[in-house]
Design a protein around this nucleic acid. Structure first.
Length: 634
RNA sequence: GCGCCCGUAGCUCAGCCCGGAUAGAGCGGCGGUUUCCUAAACCGCAGGUCGCAGGUUCGAGUCCUGCCGGGCGCGCCA
């Protein structure tokens, strides 16, 4: 489903620094070597070498080019290399294997590329005004009178990370928390709470979300009669007693459902008594939601929250509009939008036979509001992968209806950033032992408690209040990172032990790498009077890239801008995670092999301090783009 | 029945969009490193029919087809 239309602005190719130069030079050489015979779409196919013995970059164009030119790949490579002019940036090119062209950067070229990147924006300046997009990110998606659970964790953490990444890329981001506050189930709980409040059995002022969840379940139970049981009793003749029991139950449920329907009608008519109760329930739910999000360090606010109820009045006219313009048609009493021209066999149902609307209707109104109201160039939905068909339908139907059309006339990019399930260590959906959903707040509590134990053990000298703050940042970082670090479309296994082991590709490992950077820079200032600010700006010391660990670190640092753009474009935060882990690993190796503060050579010391500072800035930037808290100490 | 997603080391995962050299990490196992900037670290060793079978290609974990296994979904719930 993914991208269903291209945006008007394309993000620049995923290249930066020396790659651009090498690519250009190679292309020049190819033109020079083959002249008019060179296919117009010829590409140097530059890639980072996997193995250091093959140099830093490799050009893979000669193999296919040789084929196209009718010469051997090695001959093609030789012709390219002999026309290649790269002496200013790289060592002489070497041809290897079937026709790989291996390139190794000159240390000073690497240093100068790194120096160019080490500016205020770390190689990611804001886009020019014409290329600045408005991105609407749908996230969180809580439901009225219900606790947040692991499912909301992903919608919140991934959605927030995508929002942060796009913000970091310089675009205008609007978050939308699509709040499930409308419909029959909502009316059910509202009716029950109102009735109990009037009977003096519920105090609206002291209502908690736990209470509400109980009422929600009770209301649902009341309405959820065993209709099938009744049929079974009738069919198998289980006796008058069973028959009467089931009949009474079903009758009660029908009554409860009827009351809920009346409550829904009252809510739709803005009857003050019902509305007051409903608003109170809504308040309690959202307060808990915002508190969870605050603890998660995810930006979800009241301003960014739009309940389904805010679309309620738009639905009838929307369907009428679809019918009037023949986008939709009546089928078996229901209103549907056919989507065969989009390759979707299942039509999108927008009005039931009984006149009621469906969530597809609301979501179409949502797309219209995002694109035509909020001005979205892209609308991104961080929602469970099980909704894939639903979003394909809604996106297609919205395009067919013209609701995704922007002021410029082209359609906005609509993307379902689908995510998989959270599994327990047994490989089954993550639940408590009794089979209940795990509450998000419990998950957060446990992660922080476990992190606090670890912090107390590893760094007992940390003052208690800082320990608490570090434990929060680390515990929550661990939860968020494990969620963000694997391909979002896949299920992943939730394990406190693994995410808090602080080894390998984890949030704490990244935070720790930054702490080590900060520690060096702090000591440089306190013990040697070298202020961090002296390492940047016009009078900054030069970069000397000599040791292999320095080189690996420098090459890793250079990949930051392209990686962040790629992660945004694909809406895949795990790319940024993998990159930051690579950078942190490179730094750790550098840290172990290259002394900084004790280096006698002042120029080497300053150069290494600059490498530390740059690494720290990228780590901080990256952690913030993921929604993890950077730390000074841990 | 149809559709979508997934299948890579004992375990947890990258790599697949856009095909390139001996398929990478982490955990776990084994062995090393601390008079030195946070060892929550670093270095090394062992460990893989990339689900199976065809096909395309000079070259396939990556692209195409079929199959097997697992998950999810498929108008009148959201």
């Amino acid at each position: 489903m993914q991208t269903t239309s291209a945006g008007p602005y394309t993000v620049p190719p995923m290249q930066s620094g020396p790659e651009i130069i090498l690519s250009e030079r190679l292309l020049e050489a190819m033109r020079h070597a083959f002249g008019a015979a060179l296919p117009p779409d010829a590409d140097p196919l530059l890639a980072v070498s996997k193995n250091p013995e093959f140099g830093d970059f490799q050009c893979n164009a000669a193999m296919s080019l040789g084929k196209a030119m009718g010469i051997s790949p090695r001959a093609a490579a030789e012709r390219i290399v002999s026309a290649l002019n790269i002496d200013d940036v790289a060592l002489p090119a070497r041809i290897a294997g079937p026709g790989f062209i291996n390139l190794t950067l000159r240390p000073e070229a690497l240093a100068s590329a790194l120096d160019a990147m080490d500016d205020g924006a770390l190689g990611l300046p804001p886009p020019p005004p014409g290329a600045r997009e408005t991105i609407v990110v749908d996230l969180c998606g809580v439901n009225l009178a219900k606790q947040m659970h692991v499912g909301h964790l992903r919608a919140t953490v991934i959605g927030d990370a995508l929002a942060r990444i796009w913000e970091r890329l310089g675009h205008r981001v609007i978050r939308q928390n699509h709040f499930g506050d409308w419909g029959l189930p909502i009316a059910m709980v509202t009716e029950r709470v109102k009735r109990l409040a009037e009977a003096g059995r519920v105090d609206l002022d002291s209502l908690t979300l736990e209470d509400l969840e109980g009422h929600y379940r009770a209301a649902q139970r009341d309405c959820d009669a065993d209709e099938r049981g009744l049929r079974a009793v009738e069919r198998f003749g289980l006796g008058p007693k069973a028959d009467a029991e089931v009949r009474t139950q079903v009758e009660g449920a029908r009554e409860a459902t009827a009351r809920a329907r009346q409550a829904l009608v009252a809510l739709q008519a803005h009857e003050p008594g019902h509305v007051r109760v409903w608003e109170r329930i809504s308040e309690v739910t959202l307060a808990a939601c915002f508190e969870n999000c605050r603890r998660l360090h995810a930006t979800v606010t009241r301003e960014a929250t739009a309940g389904e109820s805010t679309y309620a009045h738009e639905l009838a006219p929307l369907v009428e509009d679809l019918l009037a313009r023949r986008v939709a048609e009546v089928d078996d009493g229901a209103v549907i939008v056919r989507l065969d021209e989009f390759g979707i066999k299942e039509p999108c149902l927008v009005r039931k036979r009984d006149g009621g609307f469906l969530y597809a209707t609301t979501d179409m109104a949502g797309i219209r509001r995002r694109v035509q109201g909020l001005g979205a160039d892209r609308a991104i939905y961080a929602v469970d992968a099980r909704q894939s068909l639903h979003f394909r339908q809604v996106f297609a139907a919205s395009k067919k209806a013209g609701y995704a059309r922007r002021a410029g006339g082209s359609d906005a990019t609509l993307l379902h950033a689908a995510f998989g399930m959270v599994l327990g260590e047994d490989g089954r959906p993550f639940k408590t032992r009794s089979g209940e959903n795990v509450r998000l707040s419990d998950l957060i509590d446990e992660a922080i408690a476990r992190a606090e134990l670890a912090v107390a053990q590893k760094n007992p000298d940390l003052p208690a209040d800082e320990r608490r703050a570090v434990a929060e940042a680390v515990g929550i970082g661990a939860i968020k990172y494990i969620d963000l670090s694997s391909d979002r479309s896949k299920d992943y296994v939730f394990s406190f032990d693994r995410m808090l082991a602080f080894e390998g590709n984890t949030g704490p490992y990244l935070q720790y790498a930054l702490v080590r950077v900060r520690s060096i820079l702090r000591k440089a200032h306190l013990e040697q009077g070298i202020h961090e600010d002296s390492l940047g700006g016009p009078g900054r010391p030069g970069l000397l890239i000599a040791a292999p660990e320095e080189k690996t670190l420098a090459l890793a640092a250079l990949k930051f801008p392209a990686t962040l753009r790629g992660a945004g474009e694909a809406c895949e935060p795990h790319r940024l995670c993998a990159y930051l882990y690579e950078l942190a690993s490179a730094f750790s190796a550098f840290f172990a092999a290259c002394p900084v503060l004790s280096t006698p050579d002042e120029r080497v010391k300053r150069s290494r301090l600059r490498l530390c500072r740059l690494t720290g800035r990228i780590l901080r930037d990256g952690l913030e783009a993921l929604g993890l808290v950077p730390l000074e100490r841990m």
